[in-house]
Amino acid sequence: MTGTLFLQTLVDGLILGGIFSLSAVGFSLIFGVLGVVNLSHGIFVLLGAYLGLALKEAWGIDPLMAIPLVFGALFVLGGLVQITLVSGAVRRGSLMSSLLITFGVSLMLRDLIILVFGPDVQSLSSSWLFDTFRIGGVIVDGARASGLIASLLSLGLLSYVLYRSKVGRAMRATAQQDFAAGLCGIDVKKIYAMTFGVSAGFAGVSGIIVGLINPFTPFDDTHWTLNAFVTVVLGGVGSPVGALLGGLMLGGISTFSSQYVGSLYPNVFIFGALLLMLIVRPNGLLGNAYKGSV
């Protein structure tokens, strides 16, 4: 039995890790390209979930089908936030200002969510997702399985865009040397806005998947922001692979510590891992995808 338990824990960890990865990849991208720690990231994740909820309740759109719509909406929102609010802080080169501004944005958006949807617990359950299936004693339910698949697909898509498309190349160039990228004819402002948009879009998509699996409240955003930060610090800055690695590690730490140590402990372990990594290797296992390790 212990073998099965171990395997079940491992599978749960992987699934959770896939979701962590997706929810963190946008955070990682902004950190890598703009050098900004986006404290409004968690609220973008929640906005995705709440938009999914609104679409479902208004027009009965299945949450998974709503993914493109949510991505589009958050892409626009993220881009606007960057252009109107964050860009000033980036121009001044003040990391602290960007930290505070994005925190202010998160407070405002959280309040708006509460005003529109109320402070109570909500969920995005979709009836057909509750079927469970077993593979050799390990139980997986439909919501989690589709969550993992959607996460991996999205991460793959983002990798493709980053490494194969012109926009992706411009993003990576801007991350390395924004000034030089500007000299080469890249519209750095546009790339920054795009990066913010893409990042917010992916956060929103992950919000839908989170919403399918877990109930959510407007106060969860700190949790998701911190998770994203831990994921980036574990895996590495700026790349989908780093986010995947960090997310899987975070998922593993989370499920194994709650299975084998106690259900109340995961956060202690997660933040302990964060502190340890910050001190030992603050740029993550894979380092910064764009810049040499500092």
């Binding site: 609010l85 200002s97 202010g104 944005v105 407070l107 708006l112």
Partner: peptide, 20 residues
Amino acid sequence: LDLHMLVTGAVLVAMVTLAP
């Protein structure tokens, strides 16, 4: 009470942007 966070956030953003 509903607007506290909204106002706090707005004040924070405004201060950082306009009067750091």
